[in-house]
Simulated scan of single mutants.
Amino acid sequence: MKIGIVGLGLIGGSLGLDLRQRGHTVIGVSRRAETGDLALRQGVADKVATSLEAIATTQLIFVCTPIAAIVPTVQQLATFLPTATVITDVGSVKAQLVTLASHYWPNFVGGHPMAGKAEAGIEAAEVGLFNQRPYVLTPVESTPHEATELVAEVARSLGCALYRCTPESHDRAVAWISHLPVMVSAALIQACLSEPEASVQQLAQQLASSGFRDTSRVGGGNPELGLMMAQYNQAALLKSLQAYRHHLDQMIDHIATQNWTVLEQRLQQSQQARPQFVDSLPEPFTE
């Protein structure tokens, strides 16, 4: 199959590597010619261009741009693509984007591979990034079944565990396990920076080890991505932040009142619940 990829960063680059390994012809589009040259050297694409018209003859297009550029990209593609072409995206927010993109292109399938790294850019692209990771599809009533199945077939070929749900359910779910952690992690870093004594803050930086590294990783990631999560998933993110604040206030109260019994119960509950989120990949889910 001839597949187009718009945006050759971490996700787009990793997609290109995997798709070419599976025999597909990949045409990449990047705003910067330098990125395209690097994509060719790394084996991410068979051909690269800076113009969207270069992917006019592809059967499937992955839009791997920042969230804010997804709909404008679809709108521009809609001016020249054959009607049979399927467009999908990899954005971490779905409801607003799927509504708008589907308006411009009926053969649009909302998608979100749940994979990533702390590093960004095509330099961080790697083979197998999506293997054994969830891949969420969010078709709506108007989405053609054939279009959804085409994207699903490609996602399965990457070794992904496929999930299907509504765009709204997706956004509520990722607010809890993706967008909330970014904000909490960023707040953790900000809190550490608020230490008033310079020598203590410096000591904390020197002593920081795996625990701080794990909990601060996503908060120290791409600021543009975090901002767009907040802008495009505002309602669900606010709800999750408010719930988190409620539970944090309870922790503060338990410690302030020396209610060690209840605090221990909460910590035990958290210990028991964590594996349900991180230690296994559930069976594919369809809503």
Rank of each mutant, 00 (worst) to 15 (best):
L180M: 12
P282A: 04
M228A: 14
E287K: 04
T50D: 02
V127Y: 11
L241M: 10
D279K: 09
H112K: 04
V184L: 13
L203T: 12
K239D: 12
P284G: 15
Q231G: 02
D37C: 12
W105D: 01
Q250F: 07
W105H: 13
T58I: 08
L17Y: 08
E195P: 04
S199A: 13
A204N: 07
L158Y: 11
L188S: 09
G219Y: 04
F212E: 04
H24C: 08
Y135W: 15
V48S: 00
I255V: 15
Q96M: 10
V86W: 03
H170R: 00
A230Y: 06
A208H: 09
P134I: 14
T35M: 02
L180Q: 08
P181A: 03
D214G: 04
A243Y: 04
Q21S: 11
E224C: 08
E195W: 14
E123W: 07
P113I: 10
D89Y: 00
V93F: 02
L162H: 06
A124G: 02
F108P: 03
S216A: 14
G91P: 06
G121N: 06
L203Q: 14
W260L: 15
G91W: 01
S14Y: 08
N259K: 10
I5Y: 00
Q205W: 14
V127T: 15
V127E: 13
F130C: 05
H103F: 13
V174K: 01
V44W: 01
T50C: 09
L193V: 00
E149S: 11
R266K: 15
T25L: 12
V218Y: 03
L10T: 04
H254L: 13
L162C: 09
A191W: 11
P284H: 12
H24G: 06
V109W: 03
A33V: 10
R41C: 02
P144R: 07
E224S: 10
L10V: 05
L150I: 14
A120D: 09
R164W: 10
M183N: 06
N259M: 09
G12T: 01
I87N: 00
T166L: 09
R245H: 13
L10Y: 10
K2L: 12
K117P: 02
A208I: 09
I255Q: 15
S30Y: 07
H179R: 01
E34S: 14
T65A: 00
S199R: 08
Q242W: 03
P275E: 01
R20N: 03
T58W: 04
A273T: 08
P196W: 05
R31M: 03
L137G: 05
A187V: 02
S92E: 03
A45P: 04
D18H: 08
G226N: 12
A187L: 09
A235R: 14
N131M: 10
E224Q: 12
L158N: 02
V44N: 01
L81I: 03
I87D: 00
S185K: 01
